[in-house]
Simulated scan of single mutants.
Amino acid sequence: MVTTQAVPALCGNPYAADCSTRRILDRIGDRWTVLIVGILGDGEARFSELRRRIDGVSPKMLTQTLRGLERDGLVSRTVHPEVPVRVVYALTDAGRTLLGPLRALREWSIAHLGDVAASQRAYDQAE
């Protein structure tokens, strides 16, 4: 039996509930996506390397995120028919366009870490 899923509207308005841009924002705003794209910005990597370099990611979440990125055309998966089989992941051209914006977010988070931590402490003490 073949099931069909509703395709979100291609409207370009992330404030509209049925707009496909929300799905894209969910994908690129996900913490695992940010970290995976950052690593793949240095070149292709195997699953085990990604898992080793991304502290705290479970194999299940890494697999799900890589599959989603592949489905969205941001990451390619290449299987090399060797013994044992070698699988590598790399950014596509579209995926590479995310490097600049995600680098800016990473740099912003590092630059403002102290300010955010101070605000959190002040907020928590006020409650």
Rank of each mutant, 00 (worst) to 15 (best):
A16T: 08
A16L: 13
A17T: 08
A17H: 07
S20E: 10
S20D: 11
S20M: 08
T21H: 10
R22C: 02
R23P: 04
R23H: 14
I24N: 02
L25W: 12
I28T: 04
G29C: 06
D30V: 01
W32Y: 09
T33N: 01
V34F: 12
I36L: 05
G38M: 02
I39T: 08
I39M: 12
G43H: 02
G43Y: 04
G43R: 05
E44H: 13
E44Y: 12
A45G: 06
A45S: 12
R46V: 11
S48N: 15
E49S: 14
L50P: 13
R51E: 15
R52P: 11
V57N: 08
S58W: 08
P59F: 07
P59C: 09
M61E: 15
L62T: 05
L62F: 05
T63Y: 05
T65K: 00
T65V: 00
T65Q: 01
R67G: 09
R71E: 15
R71G: 14
D72T: 09
G73I: 04
V75W: 00
S76N: 11
S76A: 12
R77F: 05
V79M: 11
V83S: 14
V85E: 13
R86F: 06
V87M: 07
V87N: 05
Y89L: 00
A90I: 03
A90N: 05
G95R: 00
T97R: 02
L98I: 01
L102Y: 03
L105D: 02
